[in-house]
Computed example of a mutant assay.
Amino acid sequence: MSTPSEPGHDGSEPGLRAIVGERRHLTNVAYRLLGSLAEAEDAVQETYARWYAMPRRSQEAVESPGAWLTTVAGRICLDLLGSARVRRERYVGEWVPEPLPDRAEWIGGPVGGGGTEPADPADRVTLDESVSMAFLVVLETMTPAERVAFVLHDVFRYSFAEVAEIVGRTPAACRQLASSARRRVRAAGATAVPAAGQAGLVRSFKEAWEARDIKSLVDLLDPDATMVADGGGLVGAALRPVEGSERIAQYLIHIADRAPGLTLLERTVNGRPGLVAQFGGVTVTVAAFGLADGRVTRIWAVRNPEKLRPWVGNGDRTDG
């Protein structure tokens, strides 16, 4: 694999510092594979549990602990992706990947299924184009094997021979999987789009929503725009996508009328300009946007509180 770790020299464990140092890389891989920070942390925790469960002699026999950890994490994620499809078929309403705040806004939360700790950005996810909401949504349309092959090869630059060790197929088969996944990305138009101007468009959208200006909202939305809300059955949310600029604008005005105390904040969501809605200082919705040709084409509104734990407490910060 492409993440070699040097043997340790402290006499305690082979490459202890290097092994611990792999956590950020593993979390980055697992989040892109699973679309859920909570599941990614669980997968990484399980990976480390398997490492520490090995006898010392077996650990010392591993030529590259970093490569071993990535292989095991990848296989765990592959298994989880298979079971996730079944779980999401039973999910109430639409399922949207878990949104991530800007690195400066991480709030402490359960780490790896354990106790609550202060969040350490070094252990979290690098925010780049491969975690934009549009990109993650396309990843959800792939088969588990396609997703693993594509993410590891195209995003993390592993060779197909290395990917084959994780997926359990030949390098040639993994090449085909990645090629198929690439076609899905191109067909969805989810390739990288320059961020210039996006913040201004989101700000205009926020101001029109706050003003309950339905005409301005319609003008800012693409006529064929789609809004998807994820409440997970735990809070109120549209169970099906809301389609068309007129219907979306009316839906947003309806929400504003029903929650007069709602506060909208401009925030970075998965590395792109987005909005956070708070009620009584508590984050209740995180919205990511798909933008094209100066208009909003997609809105992904996450309301499921289980997916908002990294955002709890962000109300302490005010916009300057």
Rank of each mutant, 00 (worst) to 15 (best):
V284L: 03
A187P: 08
D316H: 08
P241D: 01
G313L: 04
I19G: 08
Y31T: 12
S12L: 14
R298N: 05
G66W: 13
R272T: 07
A30T: 09
L262R: 13
E129C: 09
R85I: 08
N270E: 04
L308H: 03
L33I: 04
V302C: 03
A178G: 04
L201T: 06
M1W: 03
S64T: 15
E146G: 06
G108R: 10
G274H: 01
L37A: 11
R203V: 10
G281L: 02
G271E: 07
E140P: 03
S64C: 07
I107C: 08
L262I: 13
S5E: 14
R186D: 14
R303D: 02
L275W: 06
A30Y: 03
R147I: 05
P118H: 00
G294E: 13
G313V: 08
N314V: 15
G115I: 03
T71I: 12
G21L: 03
E39I: 05
T191W: 15
L16C: 02
R57Y: 12
R182E: 15
D213I: 02
V286A: 02
N304I: 00
D213L: 03
Y91E: 11
D230N: 06
K206S: 12
F160V: 14
P260Q: 07
S216Q: 14
A122G: 15
R272L: 09
S5D: 10
I19N: 08
V151L: 04
H9G: 03
R203H: 04
V29F: 08
W311Q: 03
L139I: 14
G35A: 01
T191K: 10
V92Q: 13
L177E: 09
